[in-house]
Amino acid sequence: MPTVREIEQALFRLAPKEGAMDWDNVGQLLGDPDREVRQVLVALDITEAVADEAIAQGCQLIVSHHPVMNCKWLPVQSVRQDTPQGHLLLKILKNDLSAICMHTNLDVAPGGVNDALAAALGLEDPGPLEVTDGICRVGHLSSPMPFQAFAQHVCRCLRANGVRYAGAEGPVQKIAVGGGACADYADAAIAAGCDVFVTSDLSYHEFLDAEGKGIRLIDAGHFPTEDPVCAVLVEYLCGQFPGLDVSKSASHREVIQYYVEGE
């Protein structure tokens, strides 16, 4: 069976480390590189529930998209049992688990986060929205769709609990997508002549400004826009290491719920 190090090397062939942003932390972040791996759990995030699931299944490794530590929003300053982050890290280490995280390098990689999102929405001929960093994708629907119907399509395809959207009604066909927080690419979507930009974590002002710029926006949530890549990772690892038991987390799901007053 492969070691953690060998699995990390395989994942870097899918999403080279050089593609990661300079603030990011990717690769093996916890555990023994020489540990033999028989069972892997894949999840978008490494949460307490995911760690418990991996332990219960007898896994040796968790592979996630979001780094479990040392990234710009979750720097490790201490590892203490009485803090949420410390408690999680100690649980992983005490149970001899390893963690490999593929983040912004997986965002830009061909076949990674954004290609998985484009595929989930049924976009044809997706390509990079911007050549410079290659994070977002742009593609076409096979035939035009009313904007509100497309918003419903996005919600259903991504199994989101709800989506936020804004923009004028009318047919849409050319679509830009950015998994996770990609609001900074709205102007690029406009410049490319897109009818809609699907991303997440949009602010009130970003919705407001887009109306004047002539772009329709759909915020489908951070988890729903990135979770499709987990199935890609499962399939990839199974192909690279026949006989390795790889599964997607059943416990990790969208944390944000919506209450909508009856229409």
Rank of each mutant, 00 (worst) to 15 (best):
C157W: 01
D195A: 04
P146T: 07
H205W: 04
M145A: 09
G180I: 02
A181R: 08
V138G: 02
P228M: 07
C157P: 03
L217N: 07
F150E: 06
V229Y: 00
R159G: 14
L141H: 13
D227P: 00
E206Y: 02
R216H: 11
A160N: 12
C182E: 09
G170E: 06
A191F: 00
K213Q: 13
G214V: 06
K174H: 13
Y165I: 14
Q240Y: 01
D219N: 15
I215N: 02
V198W: 00
F241P: 11
C182A: 15
K174F: 07
A188H: 04
D219H: 13
S143P: 01
C194I: 03
P146E: 07
E235I: 05
A191G: 05
V177L: 03
E226S: 11
E206I: 03
G139C: 08
S200V: 06
V154C: 06
D184I: 06
A189K: 04
K248L: 09
D187F: 00
C157N: 15
G180S: 04
R159Y: 07
M145D: 09
G243P: 13
D219C: 13
V229I: 07
C238G: 12
S143C: 08
S203N: 05
N161K: 14
H222D: 14
L141Y: 11
C194L: 01
V246Y: 01
C157Y: 01
D219V: 15
V154W: 01
I218G: 11
E226A: 12
D245M: 05
D195K: 00
L141S: 14
V196M: 01
Y236R: 06
A166C: 14
Q148L: 12
G193Q: 02
Q173D: 02
P146Y: 06
G179K: 03
A191E: 12
Q240T: 10
D227S: 12
